[in-house]
């Protein structure tokens, strides 16, 4: 048996619906026999009648409704059809859900699923990675699972958490990533995982970029360099300690993320490591993000717009030569 990243998300939701009567799924096209644009809720409406509900194309009201329901005892999961469209729900997510606990002492346990990141041919409005925007605002937890196992356990954990969780699931990983079976438990959120050990260079990354980084590490190993690859798993909270400990071993840091560069999660990691671990660094820390343009449609452009293994390897080699 093998299970994909997408199937893990579906299975996690099935388990949540089965185990917790407070859970319902709210989003465009998630219900009926359709089961979502990516089929992440396939079959769930039939299995759990009245709890997997189609909504109008109203991202603001979808999240607002989830906030009200969460405030009164439910555990809604909102599926954004694409992460990009969550921009029209920013007000509810940032100003309503994100401020509510601080203002009123009443937390808002919603989970907003964002099908994130680029796939070729998807263009400017179906490819975005929004984690850096959400991490910027107070009051939210931002998960960025990179493995089938994390996709499963972190979604279950997201719904259990009393605070709003932005769950960034990567569309590129939906079908490409497979595991033998679903885990029974995972690392807790907020704890980064060392995906590959090494002594020469640390690459700190998350989501789909983890797999680009692992490919780079493989390549660099043939050139005699041992790369440590850290899967951050969540960008908020950010496990700075694990990154610092790794940099203490390697002295070199490259951060890779798929969101736009300005004020990105990668910039935050570098700021923290520089402030707290400057003495650990043998070279100036570096980062790679998508280019500072809208995301292009054509595969030839898209494939070089976001960081890819070839470019990450080039940057890593330059850093290793410092």
């Amino acid at each position: 048996m093998s299970i994909t990243y997408l199937e893990a998300i579906r299975e996690a939701q099935a388990k949540l619906l089965r185990d917790d009567e407070r859970v319902f799924i709210y989003g465009q096209d998630v219900g009926g026999t359709f089961g979502g644009a990516f089929k992440a809720t396939k079959g769930l409406a039939k299995e759990f009648p009245g709890r997997v509900l189609n909504t109008p194309i109203s991202e603001d009201a979808m999240v607002g409704t989830a906030i009200g329901a969460a405030m009164h005892g439910m555990r809604p999961i909102v599926e954004m059809q694409f992460a990009d469209f969550s921009s029209t729900a920013l007000n509810q997510i940032l100003n309503n859900a994100g401020t509510h606990y601080w203002r009123t002492d009443v937390p808002i346990p919603i989970t907003v699923r964002l099908p994130s990141g680029g796939t070729k041919g998807s263009g400017p409005f179906h490819s975005q990675s929004m984690e850096s925007i959400y991490a910027h605002y107070p009051g939210l937890i931002v998960m960025t699972p990179a493995t089938v196992e994390d996709a499963y356990t972190m979604l279950i954990e997201a719904v259990a958490i009393d605070d709003p969780v932005i769950y960034c699931e990567h569309k590129y990983l939906y079908y490409h990533l497979k595991a033998e079976k679903l885990p029974t438990e995972g690392l807790p959120t907020g704890k980064a995982r060392i995906a590959r050990e090494g002594r020469d260079l640390t690459i700190a990354t998350y989501s789909a970029m983890l797999h680009e980084a692992l490919a780079v590490a493989e390549q660099l190993a043939t050139e005699g360099f041992e790369t440590e690859v850290i899967d951050l798993r969540s960008v908020k909270p950010l496990d700075t300690n694990t990154v610092l400990a790794s940099v203490a071993r390697t002295g070199r840091l490259l951060c890779v993320g798929e969101s736009f560069p300005w004020g990105s999660a990668t910039a935050e990691i570098i700021a923290r490591v520089t402030a707290e671990g400057f003495h650990l660094l043998d070279a100036a820390p570096q980062r790679m993000n998508a280019k500072d343009t809208p995301i292009p449609y054509h595969p030839n452009l898209w494939s070089v717009h976001r960081p890819n293994a070839k470019e990450i390897a080039r940057k890593a080699r330059a850093l290793l030569r410092e």
């Binding site: 009200g68 329901a69 405030m71 009164h72």
Partner: peptide
């Protein structure tokens, strides 16, 4: 006081309508 069913408005107008809807759905659930 959300625990007493008095919702705390945000300044962004219109936002509390759907929040009220959600609270009512929770009661119905």
């Amino acid at each position: 006081r959300p625990r007493d069913n008095q919702l705390a408005m945000i300044s962004h107008l219109g936002a509390m309508v759907s929040v009220t809807v959600g609270a009512l759905m929770a009661k119905r659930f």
